[in-house]
């Protein structure tokens, strides 16, 4: 059965994530209310305005249930604003982030919109193409944050000018750029194959373990 991936749809480019997921055969579900979180195999927090999404997570009673599921092992991927919200330290953000990923993130850290940029980066963590090659990854940075510090257990998957722009911590993935804005779905494939399918328990499995039994 294809995995069901939630895309937080409070604000931002959630539609583009859903398009990428469906192109890879996954089921994408827009999440606006807490009850829609039930039965997910993974969750994506899209690009958007981190200030806005941080407020709406609280206002719509989604902050605690998303945090709790992430802590219990549900695979979650944050892109740009989503990466900011996953962090446990965001200077200047006047609402609590989800605090699931031990890193310090500085917002709008490359400047204002005129400083937004795109560039090709080496991406050794991504799976090879069917032809066996590993082409560079074209990354789009829009009012992007910078990861200023990583703490124990966080792996760097991709870097720009020696600074991390894609990191993994347990079942969490954070990218400061926007894979959903390109037709290159390799990061979505990475999320589905490595974090959702790859031995990290989905929410159903977590719930079963929590109930103390392995019976299906």
């Amino acid at each position: 059965m294809p995995p069901t991936i939630g895309v937080l749809a409070l604000q931002g480019d959630f539609h583009e994530h859903a398009v990428s997921l469906r192109a890879l055969g996954a089921v994408a579900r827009e999440i606006r209310k807490p009850e829609q979180l039930a039965g997910l195999d993974g969750l994506i927090i899209p690009g958007g305005e981190s200030t806005t999404i941080a407020r709406l997570l609280l206002a719509y009673d989604l902050h605690a249930p998303v945090r709790q599921r992430g802590a219990a092992g549900l695979p979650i991927w944050g892109t740009c604003a989503g990466a900011i919200l996953l962090a446990d330290d965001v200077p200047g953000l006047d609402r609590p982030p989800l605090g699931l990923l031990p890193m310090t993130v500085e917002r709008n850290a490359y400047g204002r919109q005129v400083d937004s940029f795109e560039t090709d980066l080496k991406a050794p963590a991504l799976p090879p193409t069917p032809a066996g090659t590993r082409p560079p990854y074209h990354a789009i940075f829009i009012r992007a944050p910078r990861i200023r510090a990583l703490r124990d257990g966080v792996d760097v998957l991709m870097a720009y000018e020696a600074e991390p722009v894609a990191v993994r911590y347990r079942s969490l993935l954070a990218t400061t750029f926007h894979p959903e804005l390109t037709p290159d779905h390799r990061w979505h494939r990475y999320f589905l194959e490595t974090l959702v399918d790859g031995g990290v328990a989905g929410e159903a499995a977590v719930a079963t373990e929590a109930a103390g039994g392995g019976a299906a």
Partner: peptide, 22 residues
């Protein structure tokens, strides 16, 4: 490494980030 700013991609990309918003 080529780094491009002010492209149509990053310009229209910011509008993508505003979607669903007021």
């Amino acid at each position: 490494m080529v780094v491009e700013t002010g492209t149509q991609t990053v310009k229209s990309g910011l509008a993508e980030m505003l979607k669903g918003g007021v």
